[in-house]
Amino acid sequence: MASVPFDQLDGFIWMNGEFVNWAEAKIHVLTHGLHYASAVFEGERAYGGEIFKLTEHSERLHESARIMGFSIPYSVAEIDDACRKLLKMQGFRDAYVRPIAWRGSDSLGVSAPNNRINCAIAIWQWPSYFSPEQKLKGIRLDLAEYRRPDPRTAPSHAKASGLYMICTISKHAAEAKGYSDAMMLDWRGQVAEATGANIFFAKEGRLHTPKADCFLNGITRKTVIELARARGIEVAERAIMPEELDSFEECFLTGSAAEVTPVAEIGPHRFQPGAMCKSMLEDYAAAVQPKHAVAAE
């Protein structure tokens, strides 16, 4: 995490087509996105001066906005270009990238179809979501009280800010008890994900992961599935019940912020980070490196 408050960092933020000083990137207190969560965002990482799967993230930002009922006034190509330029302006090689789009403050009420759609991008240096020490031995997860909702009750395939409310509550509760994070079930009682990352389990040389039918199908999740299958590892995307947890040998989380993070505990269930975690950690670390950097080696 940043050692100073985020609103006090130095540098620039791209906002509505312009690069502005970090401290000047502000919104009004009556912004619709603040009051009614009409906002979508992305979490991305730059490695060696290149943003991993940038266009895929920008496309998902547009798709999330579409699901939320608005259109971003900047194309995927324009957002990609702004991200690349901002990364250079910030002077970072390895960094975290946060694009966001939201309804503005033109009017305030549940219905605000004519409010301006704003878009901004911030880039800062943010190490892995979990400390290296935690990752090496495997993190500890609590069992969350809240569940991922039925997709008939929430836009579960959008990376929308409002969907993270129960994630914040669950992670805070877990941290208060000494855990790093929490695992959430879905409305059916099936294993879903952690509060900000997808989850995988390993048993007898195979990977098992919940089917992404009521939560975000993460870009890192899809990357790890591709990497595993390239190794000849079978990946089963299926319903996983809590009663199965004791039968799994290994467990890990995936996400742009979490990258690949081994798990040692989920409530009363224990796992031993081993060969599968190590392989996926190494393969993902290699995959995110810019091609020119790999070629130079």
Rank of each mutant, 00 (worst) to 15 (best):
V76G: 04
A120M: 12
W124L: 08
H172M: 15
L136A: 15
D106A: 10
I117A: 10
G104P: 04
S105F: 12
H172A: 15
H157D: 10
D106M: 05
R152D: 09
G91L: 01
G162Y: 09
V76Y: 04
K159R: 14
R140F: 01
C83E: 08
I121M: 03
A144S: 13
D80R: 01
P113L: 14
N115L: 05
A173E: 14
H62I: 06
L141K: 00
I121H: 06
M165F: 13
G138Q: 01
Q125N: 10
S170R: 13
E175D: 09
M89R: 15
N115Q: 05
A160P: 12
T168Q: 08
I67Y: 07
R152T: 11
A82M: 00
E145N: 15
R152I: 04
Y96H: 04
E78F: 00
E133D: 15
R140M: 08
I67M: 13
R116L: 11
M89W: 02
A158C: 14
H172R: 15
D80L: 00
A82G: 00
A65I: 11
E63V: 06
D150Q: 11
M68N: 04
I121Q: 05
V97H: 07
Y146N: 10
F130K: 00
I139L: 00
R140I: 01
E145R: 14
I117H: 11
R147S: 11
L61Q: 06
K85P: 04
A112D: 06
R116T: 15
G69M: 05
A158F: 12
S107H: 10
K159C: 11
R148K: 14
H157T: 10
D150L: 03
A112I: 01
S156Q: 11
